[in-house]
Structures are given as C-alpha cells and as structure tokens.
Design a protein around this nucleic acid. Structure first.
Lengths: 222, 222, 222, 222
DNA sequence: CATGAATGAGTTTTCATTCAT
DNA sequence: TATGAATGAAAACTCATTCAT
C-alpha cells in the first residue's frame, strides 16, 4: 500500500570471493549516512540530497543501490533494528543468581538501552511512521521488543516451574514488567522532559521496579 | 526556533452577539481540517494545500487565521489536547467504592481513552515532533498525562493516609500504575500490531492490572 | 499602456463648505503612508497591506480612494514631486549680488536639495520605474528639474543680455551647470558610496563648481 | 543581509577538454535569460519562473547553478559589469594627439557607451537596488566608473606635469568632466525623455563639452 | 464610506527521481 | 557502476484585489 519494495540483499550468504566487499561497503556507507539523517529529521524531513552528501556519494549512487527513498528507509530501519535493538538475553538461572538480582539487572539494562539516543530515535521513528510503513512494527518486534519479551517470558516460565514465582500468564506478566521499567525515566526522556538519568538513579529505579514485580508474583509464605 | 505565535481567540468576554461566531466558525473549520491531515500525515507530511482543501477554504485564508504551518500545528495540538486529553478525574473515595473497584475503573478508562484514534494520533505526533516543537510535551503534560497523574497521586496519598495502602512515593507509584495500564493493548495498538481490544478484554486486563498493583501496595495482614 | 488611471482629485477648487476636508484628510493620510513604503521598498517591493497598515486604514479603504496600486503610486509621486521637488528659484539679479555669488548659492542649494533622503528616494524611483510609468519623468520634469532648469536658463540668458556672460546656448549651459553640481557628492550618495557631505564640504564644492562654470563663460578681458 | 554566494566558475585551469564547456554553457544560457528579465523588470519585478522560461531551462536548473534569486542577480550584474562597463582606456598622449582631440574622443565614447541599452539598464539597476545590494556599487565602481575615472585622472595629471593643463585636483576635475558628459543626451535618455542621439549630435556635444572643459583648465596665455 | 475576511494566482524554493556520460 | 546536471511537480507563503457587511 505504501509502495515499499524492499530490495533483497543477502548476496553470497557463504563467503565466496566475489565483489561483495566493495558493493557492501558502499551499501553500508549509504546506510550509515541515511541513518544519521533519518534519525535526526524523520522520514519526511530527510532529503535524499542530504543523505547523499552525508554518505559521501552522489545522488545517482543512492538509486543504484536502493529503489528509492522508501526502500532506503526500510533498509536502514532493518539494519538498525538488527544491530541496535539486540534483545536483552542471558537471563541466568539456578543457583548463580537470585531472581531479584536477575530482574534488577534486566530492568537496569532495559533502562540503559532505551534511553540511548539510538533507541529513542528508533522508537520515535516507529511510532511516527508505522502507519506509512506497517512492516516497521514487525521488524521492531522481531529483532527487539519481541525477542526480549520471549526471553523474559521463558525465564519467568522456568521460575514458575521451579516454584519460585506464581504467574498465571508469563507472557502478559513479562510485558507488564517491561512496561513498569519504562515509568519515569524512559517515559520522560521520550517526551523530552527533564529527568535524572544518572546510573545511580537508574539503579535505584531498577531495584524499585524489580521489588514491585516480585511483590506481585512471589509466593507468599504464610 | 519554532516561531509559534499562538493567536488568542477572544471568545466574547461579554455576552454580546458580535462577529466572533463567524470568525470562530472559520477558525474551527480550519482546525478541523488541519486535524484530519496532521493526524493522518504528521507535521512534515501534511501540506497546507491539502489542509485548505480539506477545510474547504483557500490557502490564503489559512494564512489570514494562522501565522503559518507551525502556528496552525500548535493551535491544532493545543485545542485537541485540551478537548481530547481531558484527565481522568473524579476518583471517588470513602465508603462509596473500594480501592480495587476504583483502580479497575481507572485502568479501564485509561485503556479506552488511549486506544481512541485521537489519543493514538496525538501520542504519535508528540513523540515524533517533540524535538521540533518542545512545547508539545508541556501542553500534553499540562492537559493530559500530568493532570491525570496528579489526580491519581492524590488519590493514592489519601489511601495511604487512610491506612489502606502502603506507598513510599505515591507519585512514582502512580506513574508505575499508569504504565502498567499500557501493557499489551495500548502498546500493541501504538505499534500497529493486532490485539483484542474488545470491552471484555479491556475489562479483564483492567482487573488484572489493578490486582497486580494492589498486591504491591496493599498492607499484608500477617 | 500600464493601466494607470489617475483618479482626479481637484474636488472643490473653491472653498465651498462640503465634505472635502474629511475626504482629503483620509487621502493625505493614505498618501503619507504610501510614501513611506514606496520610498523604502520601491514600487514592486511595496505591498498594499503594509501601506494600509502604515497609513492606519483598512485595505478596502485604499481601494475606495485609489483605483489600485499603480494609481496610488502615481498619485503619491505626483504629490511628492509637487511638494518636495520645488524648483530652485529666486535667482536674483542686478546689483544685488554678483553672478558668482548667485551661482554658488544655486550650486549649494542644489547639492543640499538633492542629497536629502526624499530627493534621493524620488530619484531612485524615477530611474527604476520610468519604463513602467513613463509619466513619472514628465511629472518630475514639470515640477522639478525642468522648472529649475528654466529658471537657471532664464537667469543665464539675462546675464548674457547684460554682457556679463558669453553663452551661445543658455539652456544647454544651464543643464551643464546642473550636471557639474552633481559630481562627487550627489553622485556618490546616489551610489551609496561614502563621501563627505558636511556643510563646509558642500560650500567648497559649490564655489569650485561656480568658478569652473564662470571660467567657461565669463568674457575674457583681453 | 544579502546572502550572496558567488559560485566560482573554474574555467579549466588545464586545457583538458572536460565537461566545463557544457557546464559553463548552461551557466551562460541562464545568465543571458536572467539579464533579459532583470534589465526589463528590475530585481523585484523579475520572477524566477520567467527567467527559467526565457533561458529555456527548468526552474530547478536555476537553483542547481545559483543559490537563489539574489545570487543569480549578483552573478548577472558582476558579469555584465565586467563585460559591458569596460572602462574607457587608451588615452594616448604626447605628440600623437592633442588634448582636445583626446577629450573629444573620450566624451564621444562616454556618451555612446552610456546610452547603450545595457548601460542604461545597469545604471537603473544600480540606482534602484544599491540599498538592497550594497556591493553593486562596489562592482560598478571597480569595473566601470572607477576605472574610467582613474584613467582620466591619470591622463589629466600627466597633462598637468607637461604644463598643458592647470588643475589643482585632477581627480575632482576628472569626475567633473565625466558629469559634464552626462548633460543633455544621457540625462534625457535616463529619464525616458526624447532627445537627438544621432552620431552627429553626440559628436557636436562631445566637442562642446571638451571645449568647455579646456576653457576651465587650459593655461591662459597672457 | 470603512472594514477586513476571502480569494486564487502568484512568488521563491525544495525534492525525489531520471538519465546521458 | 558512479556521477551530477536536469527536471517538473509540489512545497510554504504572499499579494493585489473584491465584496458582503
């Protein structure tokens, strides 16, 4: 509906020796410049001229590598989502760490990740362009939020199995926890409002959030 | 550098029947058309020509009533925020309703409000344009989120005074509750992802959220 | 050819008691505002809105008193030419003053007149708009330069009759003298170049010019 | 605030046959069209659309070659001043030609130059736009009037040295002579007034002007 | 006669896209 | 494949003029 024609890349999935390096180098160079502009100005506000200038290539080259502005935008978003929305994984288990420590670490990492300029920019772009580019949400979910959610859901489910938590719908609770992490600091940053985002403040907030969550789901020892 | 010059609207401080109705009628007509376009296309994507066309006036008339695109955008946002982000108030107290029922009602109203097309559109606009129009966040906070937050904070504080809840920082917990309300349904709708937003689903989610919150802050009777 | 339709004014040439005073007052008020704008911005650069604003009347009133921008411009120029390009007259004769003193006075007055902001502005307007409004030159010549030239020509002719000067073509020599007066100071001011236009500098230049002229045309006593 | 950014033109420092010719050809083509319009309508009266049409290029192309209307105007003026206001030089000396013949030739050339449509147009433009584009006067002075004035001043100074003229301030007298050349014919043409500008009339006027000048400054043999 | 809202053709300028080199 | 000049549609905004009140 929006005329997006994502140009396949996927050239040489194996390491065969062809011209890929050069071609991909230009491609990466363009995507890097496009990212700078798109994140700063949004989709509509970005101009192909400035992208070309920022990437250090001619305008024609843009159209040799991508089908147009929409296609370039999609490719940029795909790349950024893949690289910069790496899910928060490695939720260890067992005797190594208590659930509380794990959740605090998770909350802390989430806040740190989501207040990074890149994440704030991507969030802004998804929210503002999702109607024009519906697949943005899919990409975002696939690479970022969805995967993190899966990991957390799985962790909570295991905890339930181990009898450490009492959760009826781990997926819903996981989502709930991730939203709780976005109170105050992330929320304010997304709206451009001032807030204390020092490491100490984040750590304190992470502990508060994890403790709140545990109060909901920890078995109450009579 | 936003160059916003909000032109006052002078709604006949005295009750005299002067030319205001006509003037305000055109103004409202323009704002209505502008709203349609801005919500659909965002600030950058909207064009003054299409706004004029949608409002049924000439381009010149737009500029007779507003100083320019930015000014029209600000006026539109201010108006919509005032009308459509009315805070959720009237959190009753005392013997009338239990805290649980009150919080469920609050959550239910919040979800219903925030999945309305207007609220989704305004949210999209704030997030995407807050860097270019910093006062959007102020307006949004003043008319909408901030006031609701105040009301909820006050309600929680009173509940603490009455001994019904144990909350160290009512403002933080209020924010936490409002974020918890945004899990699942609102979150998915904002990202254009499919989700069950039937009244029944919302009611169930509201109860789940209120109960979660109470588990955190209800005094535990030994 | 330019669609100038000069609206007659000339209302009540005698002093009959009608509504003229009020009507003429508005007319003068408009012309005053128009003058400010036209002199500052030129014909094309001036806007009817700013003229109305400057004159303190509505735009509609402009069109009640004048047929349009071109007509208003013509009326403004006519008025200014009549009032501000008053010719340099009163070139006395006989035993009262020597020719040298008379010419010096003439040169001094010419320089002072032509470096006034009004005269510089009118000169600029004539030169730039004479192709679009051919009658500007006529008006200018009729009220200003032409009359002054006539006076000077007549003065020179009388001097020739009295045997004080030897001039074959007094009209040509009058024009020559007037041009000589425009060297240096006026010339520089018209081009926006810096120049000393103090009274002393003007007086010195006037004497230099008059003396030069006399060297051309004074009878050489063998 | 003129915002003029003159783009250099790089005429192939080496003699290689590259794409410059084409680039410069377009540039010249645009400047030619712009000149036609600017000279006819002035700066404010000219529209970029008509310039593009006259030059036979698209509006976009105008902006590929020049930064905007002001920049195009400046480039046009610079070029025309350089090409069409070439100073009157080669004032020979010595036994070759008498001063009288030299001055007559100078006056004749001056009149012929200054009544050319191009010179009249440039003069009109300088006078009307010098407030908006102060550098016009500098350019005009540098390429045209100023250089001619220097040449004439130098010539007069040498004549003084040779004892052929008696001039206290050669620069001032040179300016005086140039103004004397502008009486009658040039003056009338600038104001759109009818005048005999045949070669014969110009020749006669040149002789008259030179003779007048010499009467001022020639040593009077007792 | 004065007003000022409404108009629509006009302005300068930008931009995604194409294409010959 | 890389370039960048050329394009024309569309952007934001202005302006002289009209007309109902």
């Amino acid at each position: 509906m929006t005329g997006i024609t994502d140009d396949g890349h996927m050239d040489t999935p194996d390491g065969s020796t062809n011209t890929d390096p050069a071609g991909n180098a230009k491609r990466e160079q363009i995507l890097k410049g496009a990212g700078t502009i798109f994140l700063a100005d949004g989709y509509e506000g970005a101009s192909m001229s400035r992208i070309a200038q920022m990437a250090g290539v001619s305008k024609g080259t843009l159209y040799n590598h991508f089908d147009g502005k929409a296609s370039l935008f999609s490719a940029f978003f795909e790349e950024q989502a893949r690289c910069h929305l790496a899910p928060i994984e490695a939720l260890s288990h067992g005797s190594e760490q208590s659930i509380r420590v794990t959740l605090i670490r998770f909350a802390d990492m989430t806040v740190h990740l989501l207040i990074s300029p890149m994440a704030l920019g991507l969030h802004r772009i998804i929210v503002s362009e999702v109607e024009k580019f519906p697949h943005l949400a899919d990409t975002f979910w696939r690479y970022g939020f969805g995967r993190t959610l899966s990991n957390l859901t799985e962790y909570l489910a295991r905890s339930v199995t181990l009898g450490e938590l009492e959760i009826a719908d781990p997926s819903l609770s996981a989502e709930q926890f991730m939203l709780m992490c976005q109170a105050r600091i992330i929320q304010h940053r997304r709206f451009g409002l001032p807030v204390d985002d020092s490491n100490a403040a984040i750590a304190e907030f992470a502990a508060f959030t994890a403790d709140s969550f545990l109060k909901i789901y920890e078995p109450r020892h009579q």
